[in-house]
Computed example of a mutant assay.
Amino acid sequence: MPEKRVVLVGGMAAPSKAFGMVKLRLEAEGWQVDAFLGGGKPIPATLDEMLAAVERASVILVGMSVPAEQSKEELLVAQRAVELGKPLGLYADTFGACKRTHFSPLRDKANLVFVLNENEKHNAEGVFKNSKVVVSGNHEWEDASFPRFSREEMRAKLGIADDEKLLLLAGHKSVSITAFLLMSVVHAVNQPLLRNRKLKVILAPHPGDGVSPKVYAEPVLYTGVPVIIVTKEKTYTRKEVSGKEPELEERDGGLSSSDLLPAADLLVESASTFCQAAAIQRIPVVSVLSEVSKRRNVLVFGQWDWEPVLQGVAKEVYSDVNNLDRVIYDLLNPDVLYCIGLRQKRLYPGFKEKGEFAKRIVDAMNDILFMKK
């Protein structure tokens, strides 16, 4: 019987968390696991250590959502697996990841490719013609299917009244894109159409943006509509100072984006995979996209357009932020919400059981190791 030993390599935050879940499942089924996960930071291991682990492994799985300029470890580990004739799996956890050109040398070499949904499976099968393509979804979709807090519980924690509407902003890894998103939303909610709608705005910065949340202070300080910043560790609010300009007050205690999401009446984002989590929870989405973010989409996702917009589960506002207030206003209409919810339910049914995401990946790895057809 082949030794059940696997190497997992993922430097980015999302694959790292996903592989952490897969690792637990593998170990529960008797696998030995060498996991090299960066969590959005440099992987805490040398390349030599990773390649040595490949020598011992029976299966290798690497993440594909890493940008080309940060993909050295994933690519070299994958290439070494191919040289040694060991089964190789690729995990494409974002739209278009299976088409990333820096992984093109592996297109006729990979044994397994894991993708989001049936449409991505079709796309992957056109590129990885010798691979078994498996619809795994991703860990964020499973997490969204089983939130830690209900809508009522989270709104109570945040102090959101029943007659108030919460706009949750999903921060981007790019600081400039997050800043554009935040400034656009704050501008919109202060316009006459929305300023009396009892709105509150929360920015949840991306954990991998590499800056202090204080860089986003101005839109919190200078607005007529309440805006706060919430990270996993801290919360930042405006503090009024008599006779002086307002200050940003920092206090301990925060919440993750996943925890915050159920409380939202609307998610505003810029090509974030968090968009799909909102769709699973039947929360409407506005995708605020600039020329910069669109051009970045081509590099990251392999296409100019944002897939959830094409699917009709997100409403796009491209560059013209003067129209954002009208889009937000319309998406808070109950009739519009109902129609969007039907489309979300059809395209994003979610997971039925906890652990199903990791099970799909581990089952496929067992199959490839023991040569099941």
Rank of each mutant, 00 (worst) to 15 (best):
M371C: 03
E118Y: 10
I340E: 03
V59N: 01
D363W: 01
E356G: 01
R80V: 00
S145W: 01
I43N: 08
A279I: 00
V268Y: 12
S270C: 14
K232F: 00
P207I: 08
D320Y: 05
R343C: 05
A271V: 01
G38T: 13
I283Y: 02
E218P: 15
G341E: 06
P219K: 09
K239M: 13
V225I: 14
L112K: 06
E55M: 11
K4M: 11
D325N: 15
A264E: 02
Q70S: 10
Y338Q: 13
K4L: 09
A279Y: 01
E120L: 03
L182A: 07
F36S: 10
C339H: 06
A78P: 03
N322H: 12
S65M: 14
N138H: 14
K244F: 10
L61Y: 02
E240M: 03
Q281W: 06
G39P: 14
H122R: 12
F301N: 13
K41F: 12
M12V: 13
E55T: 12
V230Y: 01
N323P: 02
G159I: 00
D209Y: 13
S16T: 10
K23Q: 15
F19E: 08
M12A: 15
G89V: 08
L261N: 05
K157H: 10
P262I: 01
S136C: 02
L342W: 08
S184T: 08
G159R: 02
R295D: 14
R346Y: 11
S258Y: 04
V77M: 01
L347E: 09
L8T: 07
P67F: 02
V225M: 07
E240Y: 01
G224T: 03
H139M: 09
E353N: 12
V6N: 09
V336T: 15
V115T: 11
Y338F: 07
P205S: 11
R251Q: 14
H122S: 12
G39L: 12
R251K: 15
N196W: 02
S104E: 12
V77K: 00
R56P: 04
F357S: 02
V189Y: 06
E233V: 02
K359W: 09
E142I: 06
L167S: 03
A279G: 09
I280Y: 11
E247K: 05
K23R: 15
A204T: 04
K294P: 03
E291R: 08
F301S: 13
Q311C: 03
I60H: 07
V317R: 06
P87H: 02
S65W: 08
V189H: 06
G355Y: 04
I328C: 05
V313T: 13
F36N: 10
L47P: 01
D48F: 00
V268C: 14
N111P: 04
P205E: 07
I280N: 08
K359A: 11
L299R: 07
V175F: 02
L37F: 06
P192C: 05
G40W: 08
G20A: 04
R197L: 12
D93K: 03
W304S: 13
K244P: 00
S287G: 11
G302T: 08
Y348N: 15
N333P: 05
E118N: 12
N190H: 07
E120G: 04
K173G: 15
A277Y: 00
G224A: 06
E250M: 09
L88R: 07
H172D: 14
